[in-house]
Structures are given as C-alpha cells and as structure tokens.
C-alpha cells in the first residue's frame, strides 16, 4: 500500500473486523465514542469491549488518537477545556460520562500511568500513600504501601529508602513507583500510555513482566508504539488509524494472534509490517 493513500487511511474499519464478546460481560465498553478538541474531531466512533483481567494494547501510527482514546476511559480528557466527548463508556454498570458520576472516583477505580514517570516531589512512601490518604484512609498505611510496592515489583529495591524522594531513584524504579501509586487505591483497570518508552531495555523488561503479573487481578489497557511489546504482553490489540484530516478510527480489534499474525484489514497488515508508520 502506498504511503500517500490517505483516502484509504481515512476510512472507517469494517464492523466484522472488530472483535465482539457475546458470552462475557466486558469490564469496560465504549459505544460510538468520539472525542473532539474544539471543532476538530480527534477520535471517531470507537466501539470497544475490554474483557476483565485482560491486557489490551492500542496500537497505530503517531497521531492516530490512541492516547486521546485512552484518556477517555477515565475522563482524563475532562481536564482539557476544549475537549468534548460523545458516545458512552460503560464501566461497572454505568456510563462514566453520566451526569451523576464523579470523575475523581472514576480516576481512582481506573488508574493511569503515563509515558514519563511522574512521581510527586515527595518521599517514595508518600507517593504511594497519596491516593489512599485522599480517600480518607489512615490505618494500615504501612501495610498498604508495602503491598502496593510489592505488587509493582519494586519493593525489594526501595524498602530501605522509603523516606527518600520519589525522584531520587532510577527512571525504571520511578515508573514502578508510579504503578504502585496507581495500585494503592485498588483500581479495577489501569490505563498505561507508553509506560516503557522512556526506559532502558532492562527496566522495560521489568515493566512488561509486571504487566503480565498484574493482569491476573487487574485489567490493563496500554498504548504502545512497540509492536513486539504489544505481542509479548497483550491478549488483544486494537488498531487505530487516521488519514490526512487527523480523525482517529479503530479499524481492527482482535486477538494478538490474529492482529499480528493474520490481520483482516489491509491497513493493519501495512502498519504491522512497517509499510506505513
């Protein structure tokens, strides 16, 4: 496929290329979800079902709306004044965009880890205890901090320096502390926006292993540019694509084996084989 076939890139995907789960209740489900920044539509009509305790990767070329879509899943786009969202995101029996829903509560239940580790300029301990404290929790914080750091596979590395600044450790450790911070409020879903792209290979491996371990108890939706990473860690992959008018659409969603082994949409084939990037 030629790189300049932008018409093709702008077309919506076929409904048959979007995996649907008939026999299970998805933990999160978007229906005809669209996002606009002012007049500019950034993501159009995404209907995605995410099964519980699965790892779903969002892949696609730069600027195709992956991060925008991800941020919709815990109302992070609300923080951008010009952003508007249409459609629904159902989670725990309600549309998280319903008028009665408290977005802060949603963000506790659906946590987020960003591309660059962003620990607060506080101690490692306080970073992890931050969410539970806001939730009014004061008892057993020591235990919760330890458990969260253990779940994030960073306890052994930081247990003797819990009072040191969260910024004093390596980038890979900072990122796992941020994951521990997200886990401390016991979220059902963790959204990750390229969590390993700023890390060295060893730290990346640690994060990938952690994602796989966490997926036994938490659902993870991850944006990644690294296709090999997506194939290693995820169960399902959703492919986003945008044409010249920069409107991101989901063109394919399926199991890893299908999306990376035998894609149905020729644009997915072109993307995963490096013909478009």
């Amino acid at each position: 496929m030629a790189l300049n076939e932008t018409d093709l890139l702008s077309q919506a995907g076929s409904v048959e290329n979007i995996l649907r789960f008939d026999d299970i209740e998805p933990v999160l489900e978007s229906n005809d979800l669209s996002v606009a920044y002012g007049d500019q539509t950034a993501v159009s009509d995404v209907s995605l079902q995410v099964p519980k305790n699965s790892v779903v990767s969002l892949i696609g070329p730069s600027g195709c709306g992956k991060s925008t879509l991800l941020r919709c899943f815990n109302r992070m786009n609300d923080l951008i004044p010009s952003a508007s969202v249409k459609g629904t995101v159902n989670f725990a029996g309600q549309n998280i965009y319903g008028s009665e829903v408290d977005p802060t509560e949603i963000r506790f239940r659906i946590g987020m880890v960003f591309q660059r580790p962003n620990p607060f300029p506080k101690s490692i301990y306080e970073n992890v205890a931050f969410g539970p404290r806001i939730n009014g929790m004061t008892d057993d914080l020591d235990e919760l901090v330890e458990t969260s750091l253990r779940r994030a596979a960073v306890w052994d590395e930081v247990k003797d320096r819990l009072n040191d600044s969260g910024l004093s450790v390596s980038g890979g450790q900072q990122q796992r502390i941020c994951i521990a911070r997200a886990l401390a409020v016991n979220p059902e879903i963790v959204l990750m926006d390229e969590p390993a792209s700023a890390l060295d290979p060893i730290s990346t491996q640690a994060i990938e292993q952690l994602i796989q371990e966490l997926s036994n108890e938490v659902t993870i939706i991850i944006v990644t540019h690294n296709m090999q990473q997506a194939t290693r860690i995820s169960d399902y992959a959703a492919v986003m694509m945008a044409g010249e008018e920069r409107i991101g659409r989901m063109i394919e969603y399926g199991t890893n084996e299908q999306v990376f082994g035998n894609p149905k949409d020729e644009r997915t084939e072109a993307y995963v084989t490096g013909r478009i990037g």
Binding site: Q228, F260, N262, E269, V272, T273, G274
Partner: peptide
C-alpha cells in the same frame, strides 16, 4: 526484522 503478519507467515 521481527516480522509480523504476512511477512512472518
């Protein structure tokens, strides 16, 4: 190349 899809097959 870490091939994918049609290349891998």
């Amino acid at each position: 190349e870490s091939p994918m899809a049609g290349d891998l097959r």
